[in-house]
């Protein structure tokens, strides 16, 4: 859901899940635990809100929940300081793994226009005459 198939393939097509499994298997225990803690947090919050783990939720609920944690939260409301909300940090943690794995895959590199061409005659540089940038 973080990097879906659009007119180009998404994370699922790039087999990002398998790669993250492989990468995490070689990672330190600390990093593994941080990743698992973020997954557990999401399921825990979904259980509390929807009485089901994330993966069993209907698509609308999944989107609704992700929207809640996908953006930074202000922790001040009407001048009152609120308790820390952990959702965004866990979301960012998982998203960064998925994003890095995807954009470093062949599918992800092609998504960004990678063509394998590594020889360029010259740089383009600024083509404009002097003093014309505003």
């Amino acid at each position: 859901m973080i990097l879906p198939k659009t007119d180009t393939p998404g994370a699922k097509e790039a087999l990002v899940n398998r790669f993250i499994d492989r990468l995490l298997a070689a990672e330190t225990r600390e990093t593994q635990q941080r990743f698992l803690a973020s997954l557990a947090y999401i399921d825990g919050e979904c259980m509390a809100r929807y009485r089901a783990a994330f993966v069993y939720l209907p698509a609308e609920s999944q989107t609704e929940f992700l929207k809640l944690i996908a953006y930074p939260h202000s922790l001040v409301t009407w001048g009152e300081k609120l308790a820390e909300f952990e959702g965004p940090a866990h979301f960012e943690n998982l998203k960064s793994w998925i994003s890095r794995a995807y954009y470093n895959s062949e599918i992800g590199m092609k998504e960004l226009g990678w063509s394998g061409n590594v020889f360029h005659d010259d740089l383009e540089g600024c083509p404009h005459p002097p003093e014309t940038h505003k």
């Binding site: 990468l23 070689a26 990672e27 330190t28 990093t31 794995a101 470093n104 062949e106 590199m109 394998g116």
Partner: peptide
């Protein structure tokens, strides 16, 4: 390209 590396340039061995 990074995808040709075993860990796509994210290798934990360095850690």
């Amino acid at each position: 390209p990074a995808y040709k590396l075993e860990y796509r340039n994210l290798s934990p061995e360095i850690v």
